[in-house]
Amino acid sequence: MIKVGIVDDHAIVRTGLRQFLSEHVDLRVTGEANNGREALELARGGEVDVLLMDLSMPEHGGVDALQAIKARFPDLAVLILSGFPEAQYATQLMRHGASGYLNKECSPDEIVNAIRVVARGRRYISPAVAELLADNALGEGDQAPHAALSERELQVFLRLAKGESVGGIAEAMFLSVKTVSTYRTRVLEKLKLGSNSELTYYALKNGLIQ
């Protein structure tokens, strides 16, 4: 029996995953968390073999949580399930100790397969991530400017690119308007862009939004 902890800040996502995983006799959901801090508590409790964790969460995000968890529990398998494209975070997170990286657009069966693989102490490499790793190994993986963004900067960037207002982003991410404005300024500087419309064009051109 593989004990799975689900970490996502959306209750409906956790419910859907729990229901689907319960249909498999070798999997059992033994805990849930809605942010990175609670994920660390799940790991500390010792009742999980695999953490299935989102990246974009309020308070303590997935990147910080992964580093904290692997520092304390290096043998715990952490499988990232994220809405961010593989090109942005996959290789970085694998270097930080993630056992695998899946995009939320993947099939439910792939999630189950990945959980079984990482529970055996192996890494799960999807075809998209395998291609990224191969490109990097061959020196072909020149990083795009957005690769230099922090997790929070990336979240703000993608929301701005989709047309969300600074106020709306602040409310959704539990941040002040001033803080979001600061992130926006940093993003524009790092990407050498001058406006929100340029952010949108950049995101579309690089396949970060559809």
Rank of each mutant, 00 (worst) to 15 (best):
M173R: 13
Y101D: 01
G100C: 04
S22K: 14
S82L: 03
N103A: 04
I69S: 04
L27F: 06
L175D: 15
L21C: 06
V13C: 06
Q19F: 03
S181N: 12
E198G: 11
A134M: 02
G62T: 00
A71M: 11
E110D: 08
N196M: 09
F157L: 02
G141N: 11
T185I: 15
R159Y: 00
E86W: 07
L149F: 06
L175W: 15
D142H: 14
R72A: 15
D135I: 04
Y202N: 05
S56I: 05
A71F: 07
T30C: 10
E140C: 06
V180A: 02
R14E: 02
L133N: 09
I2W: 09
A43L: 13
H60S: 04
V112Q: 08
R159L: 02
A203H: 07
L158G: 01
F174D: 14
G163I: 04
L17Y: 05
Y202V: 06
L175Y: 15
C106R: 08
D8C: 03
V50C: 14
E86P: 10
A65L: 07
R186T: 14
S56W: 01
P127K: 11
H96E: 09
T30Y: 06
E110M: 10
E140Q: 11
E23I: 14
S99I: 05
F20T: 06
A130L: 11
Q88P: 00
N103D: 00
R28E: 13
R95Y: 03
P127Q: 11
H10T: 06
A71D: 10
P108I: 08
E198R: 11
L133F: 01
A137H: 05
I2M: 06
V187T: 14
